[in-house]
Design a protein around this nucleic acid. Sequence first.
DNA 1: CCAGACGTTGTT
DNA 2: GTCTGG
DNA 3: CCAGACGTTGTT
DNA 4: GTCTGG
Length: 222
Amino acid sequence: MCGRISTAGISADILKAHFDIESVFPFTLSYNVVPTLQIPAIIEQNNIRKLEAFRWGLIPHWARDKNIMATAFNARAESVVHKPLFRESIKSKRCLVLATGFYEWQVSCGKKQPYYIFRADKRPLAFAGLWDVWEDDVTGEAIESCTIITTAATHQMIPIHERMPVVLERDIYDTWLDPEFNETDVLQELLIAPKQDVLEMYPVSNYVSNSRNDGEECIERL
DNA sequence: CCAGACGTTGTT
DNA sequence: GTCTGG
DNA sequence: CCAGACGTTGTT
DNA sequence: GTCTGG
């Protein structure tokens, strides 16, 4: 799993209804959302922000230069609580990264077949995410960055890929978004046991494999 | 103590 | 910032 | 993550 | 092979 996700079909009203949020930002629908584009995110309770402002890949506030952790594009649920890179964010800078679905490439016989994966109930997915703010000592430039947490694939996903993003359920949102809550053992429990049978998937064309491509064709069933 | 690392995926 | 390795 | 580029000079 | 852009 990586940053290739889709916001196809999400609207502000849908987000309000599903996430119990009072205000949302205006944003653009995208079928093939790459890490730096319009991925909505909820940061803390009742405060939803456009992830466009965020850089994909967590840059911890203590990083000497902003490129040092360019490859922290995912965090593993199994270790996120203990890793120096994530241990601060996991305590008080958790967020939800919202999408209607994501893509994963199944490799067999050396060929890659992309799949579109989404909730069977058609609701938006809420990925468990982390964020942080990094400031340049010299220029004062501030960069907000984020990442999502991955876990072992559910039995449904296994045929396609070994890992998948942590998809949180509605009853978890409040706890996950509460910056005061920092019982890391409880948080880890939430992450490592993904709910089964929540997702549905179908193969899509290779059109989506080029991240410059966007539009309905990305999620058309083959 | 100080210095240096701090990450994941996928592929080999 | 905080942990690990030496 | 995957796909695609990977370069410079001079001219508009 | 490795980096960049999306």
